[in-house]
């Protein structure tokens, strides 16, 4: 049985430049509050649009590490057998709660010896502006 049959992804089947399926994550207030409860990050800037706007923000913001977790989940959606060895994210600008961001990923490096690959990751808002930028190092086991 090969990896594809098992619902995984074989390293040999991955090409440089391959795009991961786009993903529209759930960043609704309920999802953000749920994440906040799990992590203790329930401050008003994450959970209260009005207070956030009063403080000069465009609205309540998705926790940076939730955005990071969303990007990791996109990798697992593409390759359920992927082992994410490193995830590096730069929080360039807020992702707004209840907005409709898009996650994208693309393979930008392959290391045959380690069976590992680098993936460029972006989380963009509706205007196409990159709000979270990152890379991941991923291994696809034999």
């Amino acid at each position: 049985m090969n990896m594809s049959d098992a619902g995984g992804k074989a390293y040999e089947d991955v090409e440089f430049g391959e795009e991961l399926p786009e993903h529209i994550p759930d960043v609704s207030m309920s999802a953000v509050k749920r994440f906040g409860e799990a992590t203790g990050m329930t401050f008003w800037r994450f959970t209260d649009h009005e207070k956030a706007r009063a403080a000069g923000l465009p609205g309540a913001m998705v926790q940076g590490i939730m955005s990071q977790g969303i990007l990791v989940s996109m990798i697992h959606r593409w390759a359920p057998n992927a082992v994410v060895h490193r995830i590096d994210t730069i929080f360039r600008a807020p992702v707004i709660v209840d907005s409709r961001p898009v996650c994208r990923g693309v393979v930008t490096d392959l290391n045959d010896e380690a069976r590992s690959l680098e993936i460029d990751l972006t989380l963009c808002n509706e205007a196409g502006e990159t709000r979270v930028l990152g890379t991941a190092s991923v291994e696809l086991p034999a």
Binding site: R34, F35, E37, A38, S73, H76, R77
Partner: peptide
């Protein structure tokens, strides 16, 4: 256990 599951599901993990 519970925060592990909540963290994962809130981020969209399904595995």
């Amino acid at each position: 256990t519970e925060p592990m599951v909540e963290f994962a599901e809130a981020c969209g993990e399904t595995l």
